[in-house]
């Protein structure tokens, strides 16, 4: 099953890498989010500069981030994991419409490899996307400032967090996508979910900015979990034992979501892939 899953995700990734229009939008999206939100909506701007302590206040609200873009970057990485699902829908619906899915169904591969191939290729895409976003964030003026002790392990930690967050979404959306009969319905679902999910997360603003009734939702939001986990690494670099256990809690939370959605998504897929 693994080799089939790899073969199928390899197919999508090969197409993705070859098509320049798959990477350019990611760069543009990263720039737009980081520059537009990072500057126009920078909550630090609204603080009176005369206090002189705006940075101190910021650091307090933003988990020790030295500037807003450093706070925002992990959030953008988290949100892009969700917007990436739009492409997933196109993949499977097109495969269904043009008969490719039927071709897969008549080959002797386990049905589950079709599903997991979809999940896996999205995880790889999201990791590449997050790397691009990090580079963009580092390049823009007054952008991302990594902790001095930030190392390769921390980078891997970021990829783990984003990989599992993507697994959460991809497990659900791959199922929906395999079951969807047209791209329209798929776009509708992704769009319908994007704003409520993204804006009830701590991707853009810290938890203290939320009304108290929304706080528990914001804390449990998978984008929050991944964003916070990545922030820990970006702001602190090498984690202390206490920070490491917080990081593990976030990852654990994401794993719990993954389990729920892999069950839900694979049921949807299995139902959609069985003989007519």
């Amino acid at each position: 099953m693994l080799s089939d899953t790899l073969a199928l995700s390899g197919r999508s990734l090969r197409k993705w890498i070859r098509n320049p229009f798959s990477l350019i939008p990611i760069v543009i999206q990263s720039i737009v989010w980081l520059l537009l939100f990072g500057n126009s909506f920078n909550p630090g701007n609204s603080l009176p500069s005369s206090t002189g302590g705006s940075l101190g206040l910021l650091e307090h609200s933003f988990g020790g981030a030295p500037n807003y873009i450093t706070y925002l970057t992990p959030g953008v990485i988290g949100m892009l994991a969700l917007t990436g699902m739009t492409f997933l829908g196109v993949d499977f619906v097109m495969d269904r419409l043009n008969g490719y899915l039927d071709m897969l169904k008549t080959s002797p591969i386990p049905r589950s490899s079709i599903y997991f191939g979809g999940v896996l290729q999205n995880i790889v895409k999201a990791i590449v996307t997050s790397a691009i976003t990090l580079v963009v964030a580092l390049l823009i003026p007054n952008g991302l400032r990594l902790a001095s002790s930030f190392g390769i392990l921390d980078l891997l930690g970021i990829f783990v967090a984003i990989g599992i967050l993507t697994a959460v979404f991809a497990c659900l959306f791959t199922g929906i996508s395999i079951a969807a009969k047209s791209t329209d319905s798929f776009f509708a679902v992704v769009n319908f979910l994007f704003f409520p999910v993204a804006f009830t997360s701590t991707a853009l603003f810290p938890i203290s900015f939320f009304p108290s009734w929304l706080e528990p939702i914001a804390r449990a939001n998978p984008i929050s979990l991944a964003s916070e986990a990545i922030r820990l690494l970006v702001v602190n670099g090498t984690l202390s034992v206490a920070q490491l256990s917080t990081f593990a809690e976030y990852i654990g939370g994401l794993c719990a979501y993954t389990i729920i959605f892999v069950v839900l998504g694979s049921l949807l897929a299995r139902n959609a892939l069985k003989a007519e």
Binding site: R11, R14, K15, R18, N19, N98, G99, Y100, D102, M103, T106, S107, P108
Partner: peptide, 16 residues
């Protein structure tokens, strides 16, 4: 499935 080859009527070869 292991014994058969199927050539459907649609164009299923991946364009990309």
């Amino acid at each position: 499935r292991a014994c058969i080859g199927v050539v459907p009527q649609q164009f299923i070869a991946d364009d990309e």
